[in-house]
Amino acid sequence: MSKRAKIILIVVAVLFGAVLIWFAKKNKKNVIAYDTEKPFKTTIVKKTVATGKVVPLEEVEIKPQIAGIVDKVIAEEGQIVKAGDLLATIRVVPNEQSLQSARGRINSVKVQLENAKTQFERNKALFENGVISSQQFEASELSYNQAKTDLQNAQNDYQIIKKGSAGSSEANTNIRATASGMVVEIPVKKGYQVIQANSFNAGTTIATIADMNKMIFEGKVDESEVGKLVKGTDLQVSLGAIENKKFPAKLNFIAPKGTEEGGAVQFKIKADVTLDDNYFIRAGYSANADIVLEKKDSVLAIKEALLRFDKKTEKPYVEVKNGEDFEKKELELGISDGVNIEVLEGVTADDEIKVWNKASKEKKENKN
């Protein structure tokens, strides 16, 4: 082999070795170093949020005792009233048929009264002369007195149909408050036609009066959480109209029957709200109530982000550092607040748990 051929062979060998070294470095896997975190002691509170509104505990609807047209509205929304205060007046529009019938009854009773009076006066003279017995005289007197009473009743009925009252001081046309409190709503105006409550109709509401010093929260919770609620539980109520303020409340009612809404069964709850004198709470404010379902103090916990679930068994596990490697350990879990979760079995406070998808700075530098 010539000298030139040897040189070419050596050059080829060197180039081939350089290529092998380059490929080896190219395909060499970087050792990934993961950060770790240790379990810690903390307090875990499991909560749920009920959406609803704040309404008065006591609310009374004022309805008229007679049909007619609103003649005057005296009260105003937001006004404080006492029981017996005048709220509005009603002008009666009589039914013509009923009015004519009442007039006819008056005329008929007048005829009966004249006849009874004539018989009474005749029998009185006969009785004084000893012609008839006292029993016959007393019977005619009774008929005469009864006829006078019937006439008075017929005239009263006529006045009630025509004016709404028979002249008494407490006229049915005067709509008065039946309870003390604030007038929260007046759904009628002057000229509105109203009807009284009866067996077939609830009647027209003239005004709504409520005690604004006693408010309750009304909301709904899902069926998956209602079983964990207990009467007397403390709540924190947040109002949409008042920022950065929570009002304490106490749960006092859990509905025994739920209603289906959007494919889920919801149960109504009520809670007494403790008011703050610095804030005026209006009826109907939208509200959210934070309800503590379960609370545990000083429990061993980890962040939920550290958890993984076995694809076959679906059991939760973490990877704990064991020397240079990580060892898989299945966990027994307790309650969670959405960020931290209680660990009952599987790891100790000294274990170093792999932080998933969070490589060390060395790995990031190698990538760059």
Rank of each mutant, 00 (worst) to 15 (best):
K303E: 10
E330N: 08
E332S: 13
G323F: 07
I269M: 06
L293Q: 05
L300W: 04
K296H: 03
E294H: 06
K329V: 10
L331V: 05
V273I: 15
S298F: 11
L307V: 14
T348E: 12
K329T: 08
Y279F: 14
T348G: 12
G323T: 09
K364E: 14
G338D: 02
I302C: 07
D297N: 13
N322M: 04
E345C: 00
E304D: 05
E294K: 10
L333S: 00
K315P: 01
G323P: 05
N278I: 11
I291N: 10
E314S: 13
N340Y: 11
V343N: 06
E330C: 05
N357L: 12
V292A: 09
G346H: 01
A289P: 12
G334S: 05
L300Q: 06
Q266D: 10
D325W: 04
K268A: 14
E327C: 01
K312E: 15
P316G: 09
E332F: 03
A287S: 10
G263S: 11
W356Y: 08
G334F: 10
D337P: 08
Y285Q: 06
G284Q: 09
K303V: 01
V273D: 10
D277P: 00
V339Q: 11
E342N: 05
L275M: 13
E304H: 06
E362W: 03
A301T: 06
K295A: 11
G284K: 07
N288S: 15
D297A: 06
T348F: 07
K270S: 12
K268I: 09
E332G: 10
A349G: 00
D297R: 05
D325T: 13
G346R: 00
A283T: 13
K295N: 08
K361H: 09
K328A: 05
K358I: 00
K361G: 02
T313Y: 06
E324H: 09
A301Q: 03
E324D: 15
Y317N: 08
N357D: 15
D325E: 14
L307I: 14
E294C: 04
D290G: 04
R282K: 15
